[in-house]
Amino acid sequence: MLVGIALENNKSNTSKPKECANEMSQYLVAVASERCKRSYAKIFGYFAPRLRSYALKQMGNEALAMELVQDTMSNVWQKAHLFNVEKGSPSTWIFTIARNIRFDMLRKLQNRKEDICSDDLWPILCETTADQNEIPLDEQVTLEQVGQLFNHLPDKQRSVIEAIYIDGKSQQEVADQLSIPLGTVKSRTRLALQRLKDMLEDHD
């Protein structure tokens, strides 16, 4: 069952925090775009033991601590595409997820019938809603600007975007052509568009 996923037993992390953050960011992007299990195992190996210590301190109970670790790390796997490197480091993102899960767990344990949950309070696991008054991105910028930024995209993302937006192919056609799953095409498209958007914002 575990074929291909090697756990990281390397407890000591010798890299500097900044480098570690960059490394973890890249793994998260790989999980988001390619469901890369190896990258996820790296993230898991680094964060799961730390979260367990944190959770044990917070919950004071081994079973609850492991539940908190599992729920937190499940969210990291299932919603990796919501991680935005512009908004902070992987450790901060993962801490906020753990904080939210702990908040909801404690209320459930106390049997409080409160209709307030962490997703309302700290909307970190929700896609940010587009402002209805916001002018669509494609009306704000010239094609030329986009063309320049386009070249900065990673090759894999660029080829998907080219096929869809220049050749006019459907996402399914692109998936067939490149022999990759449809989900991968979708996530590459999303990541590429997000990246372009971020670059445009930096550009201003």
Binding site: R35, F44, S89
Partner: peptide, 29 residues
């Protein structure tokens, strides 16, 4: 978040972690 990073981490060798990792990566996005 830094407090969590700097915390004395549990050993990774616990088989519970291996099971957890397999369960999580079997879940859909």
């Amino acid at each position: 978040a830094q407090d969590i990073e700097n915390i004395a981490a549990h050993e990774m060798t616990d088989p519970a972690f291996e099971k957890m990792l397999a369960e999580i990566t079997a879940k859909p996005m």
